[in-house]
Design a protein around this nucleic acid. Sequence first.
DNA 1: GGATGGTTACTCGGATAGGAGGTGTCCGAGTTCTAAGGG
DNA 2: CCCTTAGAACTCGGACACCTCCTATCCGAGTAACCATCC
Lengths: 171, 171
Amino acid sequence: MKLSEGVEAAIHCAATLASLEDGATMPGAALAAQFGLSPSYLLKHLQALTAAGILESVPGPAGGYRLARPAERISLLDIVLAVEGPLPAFRCNEIRRNGPVRLPDSAYVKPCGINAAMLRAEKAWRAALAAEKLSAIVADFLSDADPRSVAAACAFVERHQRPQKPGSPKQ
Amino acid sequence: MKLSEGVEAAIHCAATLASLEDGATMPGAALAAQFGLSPSYLLKHLQALTAAGILESVPGPAGGYRLARPAERISLLDIVLAVEGPLPAFRCNEIRRNGPVRLPDSAYVKPCGINAAMLRAEKAWRAALAAEKLSAIVADFLSDADPRSVAAACAFVERHQRPQKPGSPKQ
DNA sequence: GGATGGTTACTCGGATAGGAGGTGTCCGAGTTCTAAGGG
DNA sequence: CCCTTAGAACTCGGACACCTCCTATCCGAGTAACCATCC
């Protein structure tokens, strides 16, 4: 089992966008440069986040991406589900029915115990991810990370963010 | 993210082997027939379980597989790790270092907060999997599942298990 | 000087090739059971 | 009747193609800023 590498990129980008001034945007190309990624490919994941309602996109010059809601209300689970899809990692194929003796469907109304156990474990995983808020990630970074790294990140944000246009308030 | 389909097969096979009489074995071909799987392919996963020390294999006629230790001491985590590998699902590629400004390595001695958060969530998942013992899975099946399904499973075990050979005690 | 229209450049969005890992299959090595032959 | 021995059949184990999904890339649609022109 392996999570898509896009998850890492998506979380880093979301954390960077959370550091922007209120209403400001940042182009996808800038985010790609910040993390050494292919701009075209990063766009794919940013689109997924936009489709999931986590980000907003502003087209045209001075456009870019920004968070669609406060970082306190964005969890890592939201991002992971947006990139990886909503389906659970364990998908029961009901192989218990594929034996040589075919029982009627009425013998399988009770859910598969193995599937239930796997889903319980995945529920714990999702609960832990839901508890990890993007705001906490950013706060921890600002307080705990190396000062040089924090300074470089802040300088990058200051350099590439596009201030909110006065005439178009953030919805 | 998607778990390998072999995980489902491996758990079902392990649960079936847990229902065998003490020391008895069952060939991989019988397990494959029980779940409608390709024998050659199922062997691949059973070999992984054997390499992980969860199963034991007995070669030759009247051979097959059996649990290497009591079902109470086998968790779903053991099986998942044996099939999927021990690496965590989220693998940090340290893209935080790939920016245009290259800071010295000393600026990154603190672990990445995003990686830490993802690993915390995965730790919760693994803890939940470790709590799901194979013995409990089998017990729940015998008590809760449809009687017809239980009867069919027991009949299958009775039909295909190979009793322990008197002269070669289980190690 | 101010308003207006066209041009330009920048942004995101979706459709299109390439590659790694899981899926499925095959054949070979090893071991035990069986049965025939000899004592 | 018992032991020995050769054969055969069944088992697991590892090596080889195929296929799906993730990775990576390109080009097109749309929009806002900019600038030249006109009033």
